[in-house]
Amino acid sequence: MHPVAFWIAAGIAAGLAVTPLIFLILDKTGKLKPALRSDLWTRYKSWLVLAPLMVGPLLAGRLAAIIGVGVLSLACYREFARATGMFRYRAISAVVALGILLLTFAAADQWYGFFVALSSLTISLLVIIALFADQPKGYIQRVALGIFAFSLFGVCLGHYGYFANDKDGAGQAFLLAILLCVELNDVFAYCTGKMFGRRKLAPQTSPNKTIGGALGALILTSALFATLVHAIVHGSALDQPVHLVAMGMLLSLTGQWGDLVMSSIKRDLGVKDLGVTIPGHGGLLDRFDSLIFVGPAMFHYVNYFLGLGLDQPVRGITGH
């Protein structure tokens, strides 16, 4: 295990252990209203289940992480399909699911060429498969929703699976650092928004978000992620202030945009939550929305400036 990965995992465990104490102190000093307190406890209890489910596969090794990401992609698509009504178009849904399974396979096989090819191939197949219903009315909307869902929950989230392949273990440490910082990004935005937030960020899309919260999260998350990346890539080409700051800001911004994207989707659909899977949070997508764009952004940033060995043929399953 990468030493930084170990320390992040230990930090998450310690954080979860200390959180109830913070709640108790806040409660004793009378700073928590009963509704907020019960909401916080529900969310905390969900995190006690979620955190091991997310960190466990990452620590267990690359194959467990890749399969875990594949399951998450499928579950996110399921939630999206049931909220929009896409699930009624079974051929399109089946192709999206097939595309996700193949992406998972390509990641497990470390066949980057196929991983990339699957975007255009699956999109082509989605456009073609929808022909067979012979119902031109609504064709564009059905196909577009299928492509939209596959791009977000298949291709974008799939980058987390491929990231787990990185040979010297830095991928694992990166993934843990990203998970931790993306989730804290939300917490920072919430807290600094409460303290300094006045002007609304996007009142039509998400009425509770403020510019103060967004900037607070940008500063705090960037600092934390830059520190973690510095520890992970110590002494390499990425270990320069300009890269560290750029990656930190990129993570915080893409994380917040992911959050806003899902808010837009929910507003458009007219639903409050996309599911009921996680008590206190809503559906999986209500929790994992911020991760969607961070994965590809970080993956390609690291690959461009440091290299993830993608130009090397590996193909552990299909090779030779």
Partner: peptide, 8 residues
């Protein structure tokens, strides 16, 4: 088939 409608 009608125009596309979001229908959860």
């Amino acid at each position: 088939m009608d125009d596309w409608q979001y229908k959860p």
